[in-house]
């Protein structure tokens, strides 16, 4: 079972996002004043400064904007993983999110920019928050 680093709280901007992850929801925000999609989460709109933001739930579908396969990471939480893919995912609702790509045999060969992916919530060996990662569809 995966054992990724967990988010650390208290942290007021990202708390609601991670509560969503516990419920299998990929949450993002949209400004009620100017409709701008806001991500990563915060308490104000990055386009107009309004604090009137609505929480929404993404369908979790998107594509790989770019990625790298990490072959060396000296952090103990990742040192034993072998090669693994990190990526920026462009979700269909219009936000870009850093995440990991799972469900590929050899990430150095099987991840492509533009590849369609779907979110899933990966349970963790220790820690209460499942981590949203993406799998090719």
């Amino acid at each position: 079972m995966a054992n990724r680093l967990q988010p650390v709280f208290p942290e007021q901007d990202t708390e609601h996002f991670w509560e969503g992850a516990k419920q299998g929801e990929l949450r993002y925000q949209q400004c009620n004043a100017c409709d701008t999609v806001v991500f990563t989460p915060r308490a104000h709109c990055t386009a107009c400064g309004s604090d009137d933001l609505a929480w929404k739930v993404s369908a979790g579908a998107g594509e790989v904007y770019t990625y790298s396969v990490v072959r060396q990471n000296r952090s103990p939480a990742f040192a034993d993983l072998g090669a693994y893919a990190v990526a920026y995912i462009d979700l269909d609702e219009g936000f870009r999110m850093m995440s990991g790509i799972v469900g590929v045999g050899d990430p150095t060969q099987e991840v492509r920019i533009g590849m369609r992916v779907q979110v899933e919530f990966e349970p963790q060996e220790s820690g209460e928050y499942p981590i949203p990662v993406f799998r090719p569809v």
Binding site: L5, P7, V8, D13, V70, M97, G100
Partner: peptide
């Protein structure tokens, strides 16, 4: 935790 670290640290970039 910070607003950025909480959204990126789990992925090991």
């Amino acid at each position: 935790g910070s607003w950025q670290a909480n959204m990126e640290n789990p992925y090991g970039s």
